[in-house]
Amino acid sequence: MLASLGIGPVKLSPVAVLDALFGGGSEVQRIIVQDIRLPRAILGLAIGAILGLSGAALQGLLRNPLASPSLFGAPQAAAFGAVLVIALGGIDVRSFALPVAAIVAAFASVFVLLAIAGRNASLLILILAGLAISSLAGAATSLTMNLSRNPFAALEIAFWLLGSLEDRSFRHVMLALPFIIAGAAILMSRRHAFRALSLGEESAQSLGVDVGRLRLWAILGVALGVGGAVAVAGAIGFIGLVAPHLMRPLIGYDPARLMVPSALAGAALLLAADIAVRLIPSTSDIKVGVLTALIGVPFFLYLIVRERRALGGGIA
């Protein structure tokens, strides 16, 4: 967190940063730390956390270590929802219409995915359906941007599909945070039900868990969190997949106990990635989503190798 505040194009000493954070320093230093770096760090933490939490929740819901929002196309769908609203025109990108549209789209995508996959979804079906949805949403996003009269479509598409935390402000924080908190609260309140689900849906139901309603709540929680995040930062992928796995060796496999650590790991991951994109020397800004994908995809492939037996058998 402090590192995130301390690193940027303008070099400030840690002391100057702390000073500026608490109202000291020059006006310029205060603006740089309070208005530019602080909202970016807060968004990095909040978005990383909700992505990690969503990943853990989906893995718990589906009892499947390969589940994650980005593999299911939720961020891509959310980006499409947001872009559609922008393309319809006349709407400020800083208005609440954006996260709401993103949330609706994310909800629809996860809902459709789980509906397609059915009750006892195999890994393969889930991933294939997720791939289809995310490709479709990505293409729809690009098309919508192209069809809108925005001549800078190419750049904007890159933003929505790859995600970035650059130059976000407190207005963005205010836009995303209520939804992220609501989503996190919903998911956290269901955590014990996810543990009961490790006995299978039938047993969980017999223990008093309303599995159908749990699914809806989980989808709603993920959609709120991911939609809110995507509306201000674009589709940042793979945090939700990686974070729970990083925590399992330390915390164990209990889906309920894994949730808070996954959120922390997600926050740390995204913050680190966002610091890294500022440190890597480059001619233009690297999108943070590029970095998370660079880390996430090889990790995903490694998981596939590990889960190959289950995948090959088509049962999860």
């Binding site: 603006i31 922008i86 400020d92 800083r94 925005n150 904007e156 402000s169």
Partner: peptide, 13 residues
């Protein structure tokens, strides 16, 4: 701000 690109010009900073 019509898109995130132009939102930069309205950043509080």
């Amino acid at each position: 701000a019509d898109d995130e690109g132009s939102a930069l010009l309205l950043h509080p900073a």
